[in-house]
């Protein structure tokens, strides 16, 4: 931390999948690069005391191969598993995916939907912050120069709770999400939705939570999408209300609004089915 605060040109990295291309493209070489993978806390996965602790510098390939984590947070693992090719999976991490501060990061919507906290260390010691508060805009985080994320603390899922993540890309692999959607659903013993969180990627400057989703979905047994149930339209409207997308090389604003609704429905259905399966 001292090194980082003393070196304004310093960079921390774990997978470096974004840092290296930036340097190759002409970003000034950092005055110092700190490899977070060498810090033990960043590399562990633990489940104790009602929380999972997931190291911020663990390659996605390790997360997707972790049976316990996959069972507890299938949506988070789906998100992590979609960050690039197998080659990128060998390098890319949750911490890097978050701190790169792209609105299209695949692992961030599930982290936000799960209510995950980031454990941040820096000159001022250790602090924690909701993942949703770490990114404040495209390529901008609330971390100061000396700070980095060591791990994520995620509430262990209760019985009847699960999550899902889906994204849309034009190819089957290798693209950045045009739209992404994560859902976390908790159902009661009868399979009725008690609580829901829906979080969208790539439709606004940061990932956004559809805060109205819980109210719309609560008390319902969530079936397959049929187009007949009116609450899907309500959910769609709530999704669109949260979208503030742009036209860019990956898609139009109009397209993102439409597909955000589609993906929100699909992930809600998947998360609800998974939640019921835990009963």
């Amino acid at each position: 931390m001292e090194l980082l605060s003393a070196n304004p040109g310093a960079a921390v990295f774990a997978g470096a999948t974004d840092l290296i291309p930036q340097i190759q493209a002409g970003r000034p070489e950092p005055t110092l690069a700190v490899d977070l993978k060498r810090i033990p806390e960043t590399g562990r996965i633990e489940n104790s005391g009602g929380f999972w602790r997931v190291g911020a510098a663990i390659p996605a390939a390790v997360l997707t191969a972790h049976a316990g984590l996959s069972a507890a947070f299938p949506g988070l693992v789906e998100g992590a598993g979609l960050i690039g090719s197998d080659q990128i999976q060998g390098r890319a991490t949750l911490g890097g995916n978050l701190c790169n501060a792209s609105p299209a990061a695949d692992s961030v919507p599930p982290l936000v939907a799960l209510g995950a906290e980031a454990i941040i260390v820096g000159r001022g010691g250790e602090r924690s912050a909701q993942v949703s508060e770490v990114v404040i805009g495209p390529s901008a985080t609330s971390l100061d120069q000396s700070e980095f994320i060591t791990e994520f603390r995620i509430p262990a899922p209760s019985r009847g709770s699960s999550d899902a993540y889906e994204r849309f890309i034009p190819r089957t692999e290798m693209d950045i999400a045009v739209v992404g959607a994560a859902a976390r659903i908790r159902v009661d013993g009868d399979g009725r939705c008690e609580e829901a969180a829906v979080v969208l990627a790539a439709v606004a400057p940061t990932v956004v939570e559809v805060s109205a989703a819980s109210g719309i979905l609560e008390g319902r047994v969530i079936p397959h999408y049929s187009g007949r149930d009116a609450f899907w339209d309500e959910l769609g409207e709530a999704v669109v209300a949260c979208c503030n997308p742009i036209d860019d090389k990956r898609g139009t604003a109009e397209y993102r609004r439409k597909v955000a609704q589609v993906l929100a429905r699909r992930t809600v259905v998947t998360a609800a089915r998974r939640a019921r399966e835990t009963l």
Binding site: Q87, I88, R91
Partner: peptide, 13 residues
Amino acid sequence: GQLVCSCLVFAPE
């Protein structure tokens, strides 16, 4: 044992 793109790894790593 892990497949990576060597263009995305710093040599000192």
